[in-house]
Design a protein around this nucleic acid. Structure first.
Lengths: 136, 136
DNA sequence: ATAATTGCAAATGCTTTGCTTGTGA
DNA sequence: TCACAAGCAAAGCATTTGCAATTAT
């Protein structure tokens, strides 16, 4: 059984064939698929799963803290399995490739800034968009 | 004449009554209105301006570097006049209020991270979401 | 004069939802 | 059993677009 299914059990999220399948596909994903792409992958295994169910399921999983939703620039929402440790994203503007990174210094600075203005940081979004430097 | 109108002249963007009006309203805005709100403010002065024109105009202004578009969490795109110096945003999750801030250290770190992965930073998005700390 | 702009309504693209039938615990 | 989930198609929401009429230079 995969991590997502396990989390469903822990959190009391009822499992169905469709949810199990979506859990499996998302568990095996190494990228950040959007709903359409996820539906395509799921459909390869079971054609009968509707896109509405995929939408409902990713929403449910997100609300349960099982998946993380990202609204990167340029359109549709994309999902990844909720990571154990927080990371941010560097997006290749040419290929669409996504690199995950962690930087404690930036995380600290963000908290400091919020504090400075009298706020408690409850959420944040840090996305870097870059293009590959060609090596000579 | 306001700053936005001036920029239109400089950049060769043709001015119409509608565009002049939108330029005026955005010039006077101290917040980050969405298209609907902008249309409301414009309509108070001229009811005949259509929302389609507002959409077309903010898009045009954005592409000309006159306005900056932001897709903060939770729905519609919001706009502000392109600032002279870059800043990021701290959004009050309760009131929706937006605080602009500048932090050179974070800016530098972002460049360093992109570099570290072999990328040139072409764009970025840093948004902090916080709730006010109550003073006792 | 004439290429660009507007207003309107229809179309779009992503996402959600009402309803009826099916199903997991 | 029976509250919840799935499938389908229709609806929703922000945004875009085709087209005929209007306007800026």
């Amino acid at each position: 059984m995969n991590k997502i299914e396990e989390k469903c059990k822990t959190k009391g999220v009822r499992l169905t064939d469709q949810r199990r399948l979506i859990a499996k596909v998302m568990s095996e994903a190494t990228d950040h698929p959007d709903v359409d792409e996820l539906h395509k992958r799921v459909s390869k295994i079971d054609k009968k799963v509707s896109i509405a169910t995929v939408y409902r399921t990713v929403k449910l999983f997100e609300e349960s803290g099982i998946l993380e939703k990202h609204d990167f620039k340029g359109g549709k929402a994309r999902y990844e399995q909720s990571p154990d440790t927080h990371h941010d994203h560097l997006i290749d503007v040419n290929s669409g490739e996504i690199i995950e990174f962690v930087d404690d210094e930036i995380e600290n600075l963000q908290n400091k800034i919020a504090e400075k203005y009298g706020y408690k940081l409850v959420d944040h979004r840090l996305e870097l968009y870059g293009s590959k430097i060609k090596k000579n």
